[in-house]
Amino acid sequence: MNERKVSRPRPLSPHLQVYRPQITSFLSIMHRFTGIILALSTLLFSYWLLSATYGPEKFAIAQTVMSSWFGQSVLCGLTFSVFYHLSNGIRHLAWDAGWGFELDRVKITGWLIILFTTAMTVLTLVAAYSASGKG
């Protein structure tokens, strides 16, 4: 183990609110935010999957929870989060490969992410509601 004596406090990240809101910073914050939401959604996924091993009654309760207005709102939010984090994740991979760092490209791909996420979220929800016979 390394024993390090800290003589001076390490610098902290600057506070977000001192910056003017921009698409770049907004999308970056959204990536982390949707990441947290999706990490939490693994709890819901686990509940749903595990309930299926406790028989038809317990699973029917899980499906009722999912189709309640609260469950529907959560699932709508998760659909958005999935498509946002997925497409913006691809954008991050492109940056890691050294592509797309120019400011105009960053802005264009940023708007593409918003467009893609909105379109895929709407399409998926339309498909889900028509599959459930409520559309």
Binding site: F59, S67, H92, L93
Partner: peptide, 30 residues
């Protein structure tokens, strides 16, 4: 990065599968 790349197709598959399982009973899910 590697897990992220792997999750691109896997998550899409999972989401589209879930669309087909809206309101499904236990036998359908099994």
């Amino acid at each position: 990065r590697l897990t992220g790349m792997a999750l691109i197709p896997l998550t899409l598959w999972l989401v589209f599968s879930f669309v087909g399982l809206v309101g499904a009973d236990l036998n359908t899910v099994k």
